[in-house]
Every structure is written in structure tokens, then in C-alpha cells.
Amino acid sequence: MKDRILSVDIFRGMTIVLMILVNTPGTWQAVYAPLRHAEWHGYTPTDLVFPFFLFIVGTSIVFSYKNKEVTGATYKKISIRTLKLIGLGLFLGAFTLTFPFIKDFENIRFPGVLQRIGVVFFFASILFLNLNWKALIATAVLLLVGYWILMDFIPVNGMESTFERAPNNLANYIDVQVFGSHNYKADYDPEGLLSTLPSIVSSLLGIFTGLILTSKQEKKATILMGLGGSFLILGYVWDLFFPINKALWTSSFVLVTAGWANLILALIYYLTDVKKISFGSIFRYAGANAIVLYFLSSFISKVLGMIKVNETTSLHGWLFDTIYVHDFMSLQMSSLLYGLTVVAFYCLLAYVLYQRKIFIKV
């Protein structure tokens, strides 16, 4: 788009680069604390990454569909993109190296990151096309409050509901009942069924930011800063009653992560779009092919873990031990350097694709 906002592209690219970094350490046994997910309640910088991507999906929906004529072809395009994202996610969960290259059915994980992106994109797009901003706010509030009520007040198996990792946690219970062995963990999935409802709001809040950025409002950075601060305050107040939790994608988690997203995007917007300071081009390149980079990084990482150099060591493990593990540095540093090398590779790939004007749309 000729009126494209540079800060949005940079923010998207930064998010996808961080997604790759936190997903590809040298070894999961030695990862610095900020690059780990919270054990359960609370959050780390890593826990911000996925909601940031859903947030920017919402912002991008505004750029794609605002002031455009809505036809049957529009809904068809949205549906096809949704099915592509879900299909790629299911492929990642099912792929194996041995013929017929599909895991046994009982070992396939059904939920996943790309599946959630697809579902959230679908519902956020449909809502944006059919509701005005006031109705979108009402929908967001209804989803967040409704999810809290469901999680807090619905008994599970005759027991009082809980927000802890337990059988009487409603979100966990539904995931086990619906997906059975097809979850990420035996007792829950961080991209589970019920928690998809509040994750849609992560994208709706990104839509509100997109509406601000495309409006004629002055001092947009200031407005975004105020919005981000307000979300943070509301999120931390709600945390007293409904704990911040990524695995459950709690309503407080939605608000806190959207708060940080607005604050960071506001800063980038001020520097790039207001002050015209040039930086972050590599992130803009990564953002131009974000889904492709994420899929390739996940797929190649999975393949490297499957290829065996010997009975106990994968190709990934061999590369890490041979190139990165040394007596003069900690294992955590070695693990981080491996991840940064992976990130550098995909940033280079993003640069090449961008320079050759290759933009692979999913």
C-alpha cells in the first residue's frame, strides 16, 4: 500500500524474529530466563511474542480491508487464507521423516500456533467487516468478561473451578475431552479450544490500534501510549481476580500484552513515522514474509531434530555440540548463540526475498 505505515512492518518483523529466536535454542536444557515461558501464572518477555503477533494481525486487517468494498470474493479470500494457515499448522504437527511421512493418528497434535493464527484471523476479519468500532468494543468486552465468568464460576466434574493446572480447570478439561491425546501436553494445550475466545480479542485490540493509525487523529503516538498504559493498568487490576497466564490466555493476559504492544508500537511509530529516523530495515524485510519464515524455521528445526547422526544424537544436537559448545562459555550462552545464528539465517533469507520482490502470501 502506498500509505503503508513503516512502524507496523517493523513491529511485525521484530515479532516474527523473536518467535524464531525463542523457538530455536541450542538446547532446551539451557535457556536464559527471559527466553523461557512462565511456568504457569505470570509472564516473561517470551510470553509477549505470540500475542504481539495476533495483535499485529488485527492491525494489518485494518490496512487490508478498511474502505474496501466487501463482496463474496472477500469472504472467500479470508476463508482460503484461514484454511491455508490451519493446514500448514496441522502439517507441522503431523510430519515425520519415515514413510508415509505422517505420524500415527494418535500422536498428531491438533491445536497449534498457525492453527490459532488462522482461526483468530478469520473471526477478527469477519467481525471487522461487519461491525462498527463501538460494536467491536462491545464484542471484545463480552468475550473477555464471558471467558472470565466461564473459567471462574463453572464447576468442573462437580468440583469448584480453578485457574491452576488441574483437572478442574475448565479450559484444560475441555481440551482433554475434545482433543484427548492430540494436545501439546497430556492435561492441556497452550493453543487450546476455549482459550481461543480471548485470543480473538488480542487481534481485536490490534484492530483498534489500526483504526487509530489510519485515522486523521493528531499525536497518534501519544494516543497509543495512553491506550497501552490503560490496558496495562486494567490488566494488572484484573490479575488480582483472574491471573495473567499465557497457557490459559486469560483476559488479564490479553490486556497486559496488548498494553505492551501499544507502548512498543507507539515508540517505533514516533521514531520512524513521525521523526523519520531510519532503522529496523531488517525487521521490515522479515515482516514482509512473516508466516513463511515462521513455517520454514519450525519445519527445518523439526527435521534437524529428527535426523539422527547416531543412536542418541540428532543432527541438531550434533551441530550444537560441535560448533557452539565450548569450555570457555556457559551452556546458556552457547544455546543463545545457536538461536541467534538461526535468526541471522532467516533474516538473510528475508533480505534476499525482499530484494528480489518475492512476497509469498499465505
Rank of each mutant, 00 (worst) to 15 (best):
Y270N: 11
K216V: 04
I207R: 09
L213T: 03
G228P: 10
I268H: 04
S202Q: 13
Y269T: 06
K246P: 00
I212L: 08
L227Y: 13
E218Y: 09
V201T: 11
G206K: 04
S230T: 15
D239T: 07
L267N: 10
A261V: 03
A266N: 08
F231M: 13
T257A: 05
L240D: 12
S202R: 07
Y270P: 07
I200V: 12
G229V: 10
V254M: 06
F231L: 09
K219N: 14
Y270I: 06
L234C: 15
N245G: 12
Y236D: 03
Y236H: 12
L227A: 11
F242S: 08
L205A: 02
L267E: 10
T257Q: 12
G226I: 11
Y269Q: 07
V256W: 00
A221I: 09
Q217W: 13
I200D: 01
S215H: 05
V237E: 13
I207Q: 08
I268A: 02
I244K: 02
L234H: 03
L240T: 15
Q217D: 13
T209K: 07
F208R: 05
I264L: 10
L204V: 04
G235E: 06
I223V: 13
L248D: 03
L213G: 01
V237N: 09
A261D: 04
A221K: 12
L248K: 01
I233L: 15
W249I: 02
L267H: 06
L232S: 00
V254S: 12
L265S: 01
F241W: 15
G210H: 03
P243W: 10
T222W: 11
F253P: 07
G226H: 01
T209P: 06
P243C: 08
S252Y: 12
F253I: 06
T209A: 10
S203V: 09
I264R: 04
M225V: 14
T222C: 12
N262P: 06
L265I: 04
A266C: 08
G229P: 04
T222L: 15
G206C: 06
L213W: 02
T250E: 11
K220D: 01
I233E: 10
Q217L: 15
S203M: 11
P243K: 04
Y270Q: 13
S251E: 01
I233S: 13
W260S: 01
I200A: 02
Y236G: 02
I233G: 13
Q217A: 14
I223C: 10
W238F: 13
V237C: 14
F253M: 13
A266S: 13
I207A: 10
A266Q: 07
S251P: 05
I207F: 11
N245Y: 07
L265H: 00
S202Y: 05
